[in-house]
């Protein structure tokens, strides 16, 4: 299941794109395409294990 903090947007405060791109609502930034694979749990990737942003945010909420 994709990261709950992943959204697809085509604009942010300072960037806009023709195609909606992966946006992290924790850091409020578009993410790198390779990181988007982690956000989406594609291949062998898993946001709970591989994303330091998710892990730090989850630890902060505990």
């Amino acid at each position: 299941m994709p990261c709950p903090y992943l959204e697809y947007r085509d604009t942010s405060a300072d960037q806009s794109f023709d195609e909606a791109r992966a946006f992290c609502t924790v850091v409020e930034e578009f993410v790198q395409p390779m990181r988007a694979d982690i956000c989406n749990d594609r291949y062998a990737l898993d946001h709970e294990s591989h994303c330091e942003i998710y892990r730090a945010h989850a630890e902060g909420e505990e």
Partner: peptide, 8 residues
Amino acid sequence: GGVHGKEA
């Protein structure tokens, strides 16, 4: 490449 893109 495949790491960063137009966001960078």
